[in-house]
Amino acid sequence: MAEQVALSRTQVCGILREELFQGDAFHQSDTHIFIIMGASGDLAKKKIYPTIWWLFRDGLLPENTFIVGYARSRLTVADIRKQSEPFFKATPEEKLKLEDFFARNSYVAGQYDDAASYQRLNSHMNALHLGSQANRLFYLALPPTVYEAVTKNIHESCMSQIGWNRIIVEKPFGRDLQSSDRLSNHISSLFREDQIYRIDHYLGKEMVQNLMVLRFANRIFGPIWNRDNIACVILTFKEPFGTEGRGGYFDEFGIIRDVMQNHLLQMLCLVAMEKPASTNSDDVRDEKVKVLKCISEVQANNVVLGQYVGNPDGEGEATKGYLDDPTVPRGSTTATFAAVVLYVENERWDGVPFILRCGKALNERKAEVRLQFHDVAGDIFHQQCKRNELVIRVQPNEAVYTKMMTKKPGMFFNPEESELDLTYGNRYKNVKLPDAYERLILDVFCGSQMHFVRSDELREAWRIFTPLLHQIELEKPKPIPYIYGSRGPTEADELMKRVGFQYEGTYKWVNP
């Protein structure tokens, strides 16, 4: 592979701008107003304001973009700056750019259920340069409990009458099928589907988006991507930290609602779906819905739930269990780990287990898709061969690698495990991989909904998990304890083995 010439960040961002501006969906010269509902909250200060700053800094926003914060707290732009700027990672050389960014910011205080507050917000936006005809993007960085009041008031008082209007809704989209349907029906009564952007930030990850290209742009994968060759698929999300004093919020939802029903299920769809007619948003989402419709409700015998306990040999936070978090209700049975087996009941995947695993306070930070292939028929190497695996590593250190057998150097035919490896950090030294939120917010500006969740996708996802969630809430089974920093409950490994996964433990990928 030829040595790549190092590029400056300015040059890299210039390439990104060229890609972005050559499309006809990006209205570079139009006025846009980006409204952050819930501007005083954690999500706004840690993710949304920093993301908008990065896009502005790199010249990736339309030229005439204004940012308006809205929340109940009586704040000023200076207050917003004070709480969000520490997350910007701005350099001293960017000081003038930073001043320009905050000059485009404003803030309006108001209630979430008060019509007069929204009329005041609308008047404020109209007073901005060309504000009355601007395109408006409303980001709901809010708890779902206020979605209905907020969307109703936005629709009645704050819509642009000339430009387009788009609304970005953060997960969780309800707690179960019934609450999700209620919320979807409410929002759909106010906005068209092409105006609604239900954001799952995992769909903005580079390697998640790469799944489609790997599958449908490489001839070698087509013939082997089926039940005849693939023994099982494992989708993993692991965090090495616990709730760390923020367990009160987590306890309301648990690990299945927080990660599995959305992030992991979306990745499953991209692995299992048929080739779409095109890369058009609805063509892709149509195929994802077909996959979900082929999955039956989760069966309790295919589920393992766990909850982390303190590690007596650990240090600091590792010595504390979930129930030691003062914000967690006493005696909570909320799971911090889950392993679930699903089956896609169609011709391509009949009988292939899709194993979804996620948890907190585990032994490493990792998100990946792992396809394990069947054993080689007619073994001539005296059971020395391990199964081939194709691994798409989402985070950290984005990579695609194939675990395969090669001859060990020497005189004899002794096979050993090795890999074919594409590590993004080595291959793409001159490429700026956008943060997931950067990519998705740019998608909203461009009107691309491919990486957002459609209402029928959402409904099918909740259909699969709601009976299990209701059973857990009714019966309150005690989750299996696992030690902070471990791989999780051993019962999860036993479940995976029972459905056909072979864990060798003899080879570990190392970032080159």
Rank of each mutant, 00 (worst) to 15 (best):
R182T: 13
L96V: 14
L20A: 15
Q178W: 13
D58M: 14
A44I: 01
I187P: 04
I167F: 13
A90W: 11
R227W: 05
T145D: 04
E206Y: 08
L20V: 12
V213W: 08
I255W: 02
S8C: 06
L75W: 10
I33N: 06
I199T: 08
S132N: 13
S179E: 08
T236Y: 06
N153V: 08
S106R: 13
S184D: 08
R17Q: 15
D200H: 02
T145V: 06
R72P: 02
P50C: 06
E206L: 06
E206D: 06
L177W: 06
F237L: 09
V12S: 15
I220Q: 03
Y118L: 07
I36M: 03
I255S: 01
K46I: 01
K205D: 00
T151E: 00
L121N: 03
Y49R: 04
F102D: 03
N105H: 14
A44F: 00
Q11E: 15
D228R: 07
L16V: 14
W54E: 09
A141S: 08
Y107G: 00
F56W: 15
A6W: 15
Y139F: 08
W225I: 07
N153E: 13
L190G: 06
V233F: 04
I167T: 09
T10E: 14
E99M: 08
N126Y: 10
S184Y: 08
K46F: 03
G222V: 08
G110K: 03
W225P: 02
R9G: 10
K45F: 06
E63T: 11
S29D: 12
L121Y: 01
F21E: 14
R246T: 00
K95Y: 10
S40F: 03
F26E: 12
T236N: 07
N105A: 06
P144A: 07
T76M: 10
R57N: 07
L7Q: 15
M207F: 01
T236I: 05
S123N: 15
S117F: 09
S29N: 15
I52E: 03
Q83A: 12
P240K: 06
A39R: 04
G131R: 12
V169I: 12
P86Q: 12
E63R: 12
K82R: 13
V208I: 11
A115M: 14
A115G: 14
L43A: 01
T76E: 13
R81G: 05
D24E: 10
G59N: 12
T31K: 15
S160K: 11
I230G: 00
S106G: 09
K47D: 01
F138C: 06
T76V: 09
R120N: 14
D58C: 10
L128H: 13
W54S: 07
A116P: 13
I67L: 07
M125K: 02
P144C: 00
A134K: 10
R215F: 00
F241V: 05
E93S: 10
R166T: 00
P240W: 07
F241E: 04
K45L: 06
E94C: 09
Y139T: 06
V169W: 03
S157T: 12
P223W: 06
V169E: 00
G254I: 03
E252P: 12
Y70A: 07
F21P: 15
S29H: 12
W225L: 01
F237I: 11
G248V: 01
G204N: 01
R246E: 02
Q161D: 14
M212K: 04
L214V: 12
K89E: 15
N64C: 11
G41D: 02
T151Q: 06
D176N: 10
L121V: 09
E18V: 06
L130W: 14
Y139Q: 06
L137K: 00
Q195T: 07
Q22H: 15
V68T: 06
E244Q: 10
A44S: 07
R175G: 06
K47I: 03
F56S: 03
F138P: 01
R81M: 15
G110T: 00
I162E: 15
E206A: 06
Y147F: 10
A115Y: 11
V12P: 15
V208L: 14
L121F: 08
P172S: 00
R227F: 07
S184E: 01
Q209A: 09
I154Y: 02
D113M: 10
G245H: 11
L121I: 10
A109L: 09
L98I: 12
M37L: 09
S132P: 12
F66Y: 15
K46Q: 02
Q119V: 12
D194G: 10
T243Y: 06
T10N: 15
S106T: 14
L98Y: 06
S123C: 15
E99T: 09
R74V: 15
A231K: 14
G23F: 13
N153W: 09
L60R: 08
K205N: 00
L61I: 13
S184W: 05
G222P: 15
W225C: 02
G163V: 05
R182A: 14
L96N: 14
D251G: 05
R166S: 05
G131S: 14
I162H: 11
L142V: 11
A127T: 14
P62K: 07
D200I: 01
L96E: 08
N165L: 11
E93W: 08
Y49N: 02
A39C: 07
T10K: 15
P50T: 07
G242P: 04
G14I: 09
A71N: 03
Q161T: 15
L142M: 04
Y202Q: 01
V169R: 02
G14F: 14
P240H: 10
V5E: 15
I255T: 05
P240C: 09
G14L: 09
H27W: 11
V213A: 12
T145S: 12
G131K: 13
Y112H: 00
R246N: 03
K97Y: 06
T243H: 02
W53N: 02
E170M: 03
V12T: 15
N226F: 06
R17Y: 15
Q133G: 08
L211C: 07
D42F: 01
M159K: 14
P143M: 01
L235Q: 02
Q119S: 13
V208N: 11
E244S: 13
E19S: 15
G245L: 10
D113T: 10
L20G: 00
A39S: 05
I199E: 04
G222E: 14
A217E: 00
G254A: 05
N105T: 11
V146E: 06
G254H: 01
R198W: 04
V233L: 05
F34W: 07
Y202T: 02
P144D: 02
A78R: 13
N218M: 04
G110E: 06
A217Y: 05
G59T: 04
K82Y: 11
M37P: 08
M212G: 03
D200Q: 05
G38S: 01
Y139C: 04
R227C: 08
I33V: 12
H201W: 01
L98H: 01
N165E: 10
L20E: 12
Y70H: 09
N226E: 07
I220D: 00
K238W: 00
Y197D: 00
F56G: 02
K152A: 09
S8N: 14
L20R: 15
L137R: 02
Q209C: 08
I167M: 14
Q11N: 15
F87M: 09
F221W: 15
A25G: 15
A44V: 05
E170R: 02
H155Y: 14
F26V: 14
D42T: 00
G204R: 04
C158N: 12
S8R: 15
N135V: 06
V208M: 13
F250I: 03
Y112A: 02
S184A: 11
P144E: 04
D194V: 08
H186D: 07
G23L: 11
K45E: 05
K152P: 00
D194Y: 08
F88Y: 08
N210M: 03
D113G: 09
N64F: 08
H201G: 01
I167N: 03
Y70I: 07
I162D: 13
K238A: 06
G163F: 07
Y147N: 01
T91H: 11
E19Y: 15
Y202V: 01
L98M: 10
